[in-house]
C-alpha cells in the first residue's frame, strides 16, 4: 500500500530550481533513504513534504490526503512527523517537556478546561506524561527526563528529536540526517532504533550521508542530483547504477 506519493514536485528559489519535477512513492513499512550530493535538493523535498515550504507545482498525497496546501501542524496532525537537520529542540525546556510538545497535537483539553483544571484535563495530562515517558524509554533517554534539553550531548539531542516526533503518533516519520554528528557507537544505536521504529509499523524516510548506514537500514533508496531523481530501487541496484556512481565519483570525461 502506498502511503506517500510525490507527483512532479517542483520548487525554485528566485532563479534557482531546487527541485525539478520529482516523483516517487513510499510504501507502508518502507525505510526509504533519500541520498544525493550536497545541493541535490533533498532537504527541499523534505520541507515540501512537511509543509515548511509550498511547491510551485506538483502534488503530494499522504494517506489519501493532499498535503501541498496544508500548514505544518496540520500535516503533523495527519500523522506525518519530522526531525530537523539542524537540531531544533526547545533547549531551555526540560527533556520531558520537549517530548510533550510532540504529544500536544494528540491532546484535546480546551483552554477553559485548562484554566479551571477540570477532571478530564487532569486525566489527559497524566496520560500524556505516561506516553511521553514511554517514548523517552523507547529512545533510551528516560533517565534524563528532568534535564534541560540544551544540556544533552549531540547524539542524545538527535534521539530526543526522534522521541518528540514519535510522541505525535505518526504513521510516517521523516528524519533529516539523523546520524549527522554522531559517533560510531551512537550511529550503531541509531541503526537499531530505526529498526525498532519500523517494527512499530511506522514508515521511515531519511536523508543521510553515511552510506554504510543507508545501505544497512534502508530497503529502498532514491538518489537525487541537481533537483531531479536519477535512480531508485533496492540498495544493491542503486549501488551498481552507473549514473549514481558518476554523481558521487564524477563522470569520466572521455
Amino acid at each position: 500500500m502506498i502511503i506517500l506519493s510525490l507527483n512532479n514536485l517542483t520548487k525554485s528559489f528566485g532563479g534557482l530550481v531546487a527541485v525539478a519535477g520529482v516523483s516517487f512513492e513510499v510504501e507502508r513499512g518502507d525505510v526509504m533513504g533519500l541520498i544525493g550530493p550536497n545541493g541535490a535538493g533533498k532537504t527541499t523535498v523534505f520541507n515540501l513534504i512537511t509543509g515548511a515550504s509550498r511547491p510551485d507545482d506538483g502534488h503530494i498525497f499522504f494517506d489519501g490526503r493532499r498535503l501541498e496546501r496544508l500548514k505544518p501542524h496540520r500535516i503533523v496532525h495527519l500523522g506525518l512527523a519530522r526531525t530537523f537537520q539542524t537540531i531544533r529542540l526547545f533547549p531551555r525546556l526540560s527533556v520531558l517537556e520537549n517530548v510533550l510538545s510532540g504529544a500536544h497535537c494528540r491532546m484535546k483539553s480546551s483552554i477553559i478546561s485548562s484554566l479551571l483544571r477540570l477532571p478530564a484535563q487532569r486525566r489527559e495530562e497524566k496520560a500524556a506524561l505516561g506516553r511521553a515517558m514511554a517514548e523517552l524509554r523507547f529512545v533510551g533517554l528516560d533517565g534524563l527526563w528532568r534535564a534541560e534539553a540544551g544540556s544533552l550531548s549531540y547524539g542524545d539531542q538527535r534521539r530526543l528529536e526522534i522521541a518528540r516526533a514519535l510522541a505525535s503518533e505518526p504513521k510516517l516519520i521523516v528524519l533529516d540526517e539523523p546520524a549527522g554528528g554522531m559517533n560510531e557507537r551512537e550511529t550503531l544505536e541509531l541503526r537499531d532504533l530505526v529498526a525498532r521504529i519500523r517494527a512499530k509499523d511506522i514508515t521511515v524516510i531519511l536523508i543521510e550521508h553515511d552510506m554504510s548506514f543507508v545501505m544497512e537500514v534502508c530497503n529502498k533508496i532514491v538518489v537525487m542530483e541537481n533537483g531531479a531523481v536519477i535512480a531508485r530501487g533496492s540498495p544493491d541496484s542503486v549501488r551498481r547504477d552507473q549514473r549514481v556512481v558518476e554523481a558521487y565519483l564524477g563522470a569520466d570525461e572521455d
Binding site: 512537511t50 501542524h73 503533523v76 510532540g102 500536544h104 497535537c105 483544571r117
Partner: peptide
C-alpha cells in the same frame, strides 16, 4: 493552572522557537 497545561506549554514552545513549535504539531497562529 493554565500555565501548567497543554495551553501554557504550547505558548512556551512558541516563545522558544515558533518554527519548531509549528513543525511538531502546535497550531501556532
Amino acid at each position: 493552572w493554565l500555565e501548567n497545561s497543554r495551553f501554557g506549554r504550547a505558548l512556551n514552545f512558541i516563545r522558544e522557537d515558533t518554527v519548531a513549535a509549528e513543525g511538531v504539531g502546535v497550531d501556532t497562529a
